[in-house]
Every structure is written in C-alpha cells, then in structure tokens.
Design a protein around this nucleic acid. Sequence first.
DNA 1: TTCAAAATTGCAAGTATATTGCAGTTTTAA
DNA 2: TTAAAACTGCAATATACTTGCAATTTTGAA
Lengths: 141, 141
Amino acid sequence: MKKSDISHKAKDLLRSANLNCTRSQILILEKLLQVSRPLSRDEIIKTLGKSSPDQATVYRVLKRFCEKGIIHKAYLQSRAWKYELAHNCTETQCHPHFTCTGCGKTFCLKNSFLPLIKNLEKGFVFHRQQVRVEGLCSMCS
Amino acid sequence: MKKSDISHKAKDLLRSANLNCTRSQILILEKLLQVSRPLSRDEIIKTLGKSSPDQATVYRVLKRFCEKGIIHKAYLQSRAWKYELAHNCTETQCHPHFTCTGCGKTFCLKNSFLPLIKNLEKGFVFHRQQVRVEGLCSMCS
DNA sequence: TTCAAAATTGCAAGTATATTGCAGTTTTAA
DNA sequence: TTAAAACTGCAATATACTTGCAATTTTGAA
Ligand SMILES: [Mn+2]
Ligand SMILES: [Mn+2]
Ligand SMILES: [Zn+2]
Ligand SMILES: [Zn+2]
C-alpha cells in the first residue's frame, strides 16, 4: 500500500472510532497498518525513531485503540504484550500466530482457522478463541 | 487425592526427573499436583504462606521443572506467567484454557481438543499448538 | 477566525514481575 | 561419614507497564 493511502486509512480509522487525529495516534496506527503483524511497545518506539511518542503515550494509545476495537493483543508467549490490527478476524476468532522456536519470529497465519471449540460445560458461554502455534520457520528448519 | 498420595507422587516425579527431593521443590510440586490448574509465582507463595520458599527460588524451581518437562507455562493473557503440570497433554497440544471475562478465573478444558492446524506454508515445521478460549463461566453467565 | 472545553501528551515517579551474583546450606551417593 | 553437586535466601538489578500532574494540542461551536 502507498504511504499516502496508509496515512489516509489511519485517519479514517481514527475518525470512525471517535478518536482525535493527533500526531501520536496517527503515527502509531500508520505503523501498525504498515507492518501488519503484532508489535510491542518497544518495537513501535524503536521503529518510529526520534519522532516516537513517549512510552506512556504509546501504552495509552494502544489501550485506547483496544477499547475501540481497532486493535487487539495478540495471543503470544513473549514477555511483552504485542498489538496488531483487528482485521482478518471474526467476532469469534482471530487468525492464529506461528512463533518459530529457532529465531523467535512470529508470523500471522491469515488463512488458517480452526473449528470453534465444542462441548463447553453447562452454563459456560463461548465468546472467542485464540490459537498459537510453535515450530520452525522456513529459515530455521 | 489424599495428602500422603500427593506427597508420594511429588517425590516420585522429582526422582524420575533427576531432581533432588528438597523442601522447596517438594512443596511447590505438591501444590501444583493439589490444585491442578495454572498458578503464578504470586499464587504459589501466597498459598504456601509462611513456609514458602523465596521468590527467586520459586522461579528457579519452576524453570527447572519446565526444563525437565514436568510442568509448562500455560498460555494465558495475565501479566504474570502461570505454570501447571504437563499431564493431560500430548506432544503436539496441551488442553485448552477457558478464561472468564467476568470473574477472571481460568478453567482447564481437559477434554476438549481441537484438530491440529493444517496448510502451514512450505518450509514451516509444526511442533505444537495451544488454544485459549474467552467467555463467561457458569457463575458469571 | 477565535477560543475554551475536552482530549491527549511528556516527564518522572511508582508498581509488578522476573533475573542474577554470591555466599551459605542441604541433598545425594559413594 | 564426607565431599561434590544441587539447591537456597537475600539483596540488587532488569524489564514491562502504570499513574499523577502540569502543559500542550485538538476539536467544534461561536
Ligand atoms: Mn496477526
Ligand atoms: Mn490446564
Ligand atoms: Zn525461525
Ligand atoms: Zn466467571
């Protein structure tokens, strides 16, 4: 996607979520649109470089985005939380993530969905499920 | 299970993993056998009370247990890591965990397995997968 | 365009969680 | 009984995340 398209899309997303188009929120959302995989606070700040907002702001923006449903936490095992756009997801299931035990990289499996879990105990209500896969990526295998 | 059975089982497990039967390791393993659900460092120390080992020891013991394959980290979304016995698991998949968004409690779904993910990209090697389910428990629904 | 309320931000301090170095203790096996 | 190996506690350190507050930016209505 072109840079100007991303910029435009970011602003649209912000407006449709009733959030202000501030420098920080635009920068962070553009970055997430651009890379299209889960990012941690650290990765966001590092890749934004000198122009990056403060870490407190980054966390607050990510929290806001989550509350509005624009992004969500990915279901990974890293110590730090990672966030990604909430597209490629249905109400009941996000795409699975593959983490390589060799190099540590995480890949989005955008086209693999598992059937939803069945036979929950009586009284239990299902909302959504998440899947995490471990293995070796093509570089490490 | 009776208390003496648990104690006996803990020691057996330790021996079969080539670990020493020390006070700390026995206490922590007994606790995990007893509750049969994922526990954090904090929960372990609190429920063991005055007789609990130091937190550094708790972490080191849990790490040792993981390395020997006696326990593993449950993949939850809590900030603190949680550990549980590595039974009720196959090589390729641990039982799923259900977390209630109402009360925050986590339940082990010991009898629900999903089919393994298919169609990994060329070169990718599957090792294991884990599933997390969100919803409401019978108390909160 | 102007301007005040509301939203957002940076900074610094604070909290929660996990790790490490090291000296001392416990466990094991011979 | 004893010495090596395994384990432990304590205190310091590292990392991830949160919060209070004063200052700045954004927005929408005038
Ligand atoms: Mn993803
Ligand atoms: Mn479990
Ligand atoms: Zn890899
Ligand atoms: Zn509940």
